[in-house]
């Protein structure tokens, strides 16, 4: 693969995805919307796990918080403007990430994993046990947010293809933003911290500040995904914050291949489709009810045998192909 192809490939994929609503039905468009939302969510986590070396097991906190923020900001039977509600939801997530970040970044390794999980659970119990967010029933979002410029409606999110395009645009924006950030001096420093935190400190980098910035950005981006998920489903309940959500997104990052960004997109495709297939009653009949068994075994196999994920597999076969051509 030459340099130019790698440069244009993301645009090509985004372009093809943008054409999708012209050829496909409602069901697959909704499924693909879900994939793209999970891709945003996974990329935000990859920034932490794959590039900063921080394994967070509580990333659902920021995803769910943005969903709840939208639900609580929106008047019950009226539309809220996306122009301010999305930035507000993302801002709340960034703020929460900043505050929790100050605490969790005092820990490392196993501690960090447990503490991030514990803070996500704290949020879960706040929404589950109190009436703030409708308790365990959650809140319905009856009307989708509006996107208007003056009196002109730029997009109608009640239409699934309009919503799909919005999600795709935000996914592309997240990808490009992260690629830019990771290529900057800031991004290089993050990877340096992942590889050798101690040495970075000895070289004069204020490691904590870099990690906190990364943690905050990651939480904010997860907020974009959570906001969109809440819009898509039309309701939020504590499940959106549950640790299964955190486990799923971590699985997507690993399955796709951490530290690659595009791997998160591949992983989201693979994971959402896998869930869809395993729980398909037409194919698996009564066994489909227990699809989580197959999913659990699949997750264990990935952990044991595919640590570099699908992106690693692609790279490997790419190297093999390259080796074969040079052999000739």
């Amino acid at each position: 693969m030459n340099f130019r192809a790698a440069d244009y490939l993301p645009w090509l994929v985004i372009g093809l995805l943008a054409l999708f609503p012209l050829v496909e039905s409602t069901f697959y468009m909704q499924l693909l919307t879900k994939v793209l939302i999970m891709a945003i969510f996974a990329m935000s986590l990859d920034l932490l796990v794959g590039y900063t070396g921080l394994v967070s097991f509580g990333h659902a906190a920021y995803f769910g918080l943005a969903g709840y923020a939208l639900a609580l900001m929106a008047p019950q039977y009226e539309a809220v403007s996306l122009w301010w509600s999305l930035p507000a939801a993302v801002g709340i997530c960034a703020l929460f990430a900043l505050v929790t970040g100050v605490l969790v970044l005092r820990t490392r390794g196993i501690y960090f994993i447990m503490v991030t999980l514990a803070f996500a659970q704290m949020l879960f119990f706040i929404f589950h046990d109190t009436k703030i967010g409708g308790g365990s029933d959650g809140i319905y979002i009856y009307v989708k947010p509006t996107m208007k410029s003056g009196e002109v409606e730029l997009a109608n999110l009640e239409k699934i293809e309009h919503f799909y395009w919005l999600v795709l645009a935000l996914m592309a924006a997240t990808f490009l933003l992260l690629r830019r950030v990771l290529g900057s001096t800031f991004g290089r420093a993050l990877v340096g911290i992942k590889v050798n935190e101690h040495r970075m400190r000895a070289l004069g980098f204020p490691v904590f500040r870099y990690q906190l910035a990364s943690f905050t950005l990651s939480g904010a981006l997860a907020g974009i995904a959570g906001y969109l998920a809440a819009v898509q489903y039309g309701f939020v309940n504590p499940e959106i914050l549950s640790w299964h959500q955190s486990g799923a997104v971590l699985m997507i990052v690993i399955l796709g291949g951490m530290g690659t960004l595009y791997g998160s997109v591949i992983g989201a495709f693979a994971f959402v489709l896998l869930q869809e297939i395993l729980s398909n009653q037409a194919w698996f009949g009564a066994a489909a009810k227990h699809w989580q068994l197959a999913l659990g075994i699949f997750i264990m196999l990935v952990a044991l045998y595919l640590p570099q994920g699908l992106a690693g597999l692609l790279r490997q076969s790419g190297r093999k192909a390259a080796a074969e051509t040079t052999d000739e």
Partner: peptide, 9 residues
């Protein structure tokens, strides 16, 4: 420049 996030390293 350390915290400039948009310029290529």
């Amino acid at each position: 420049h350390a915290l400039r996030v948009f310029h290529r390293a």
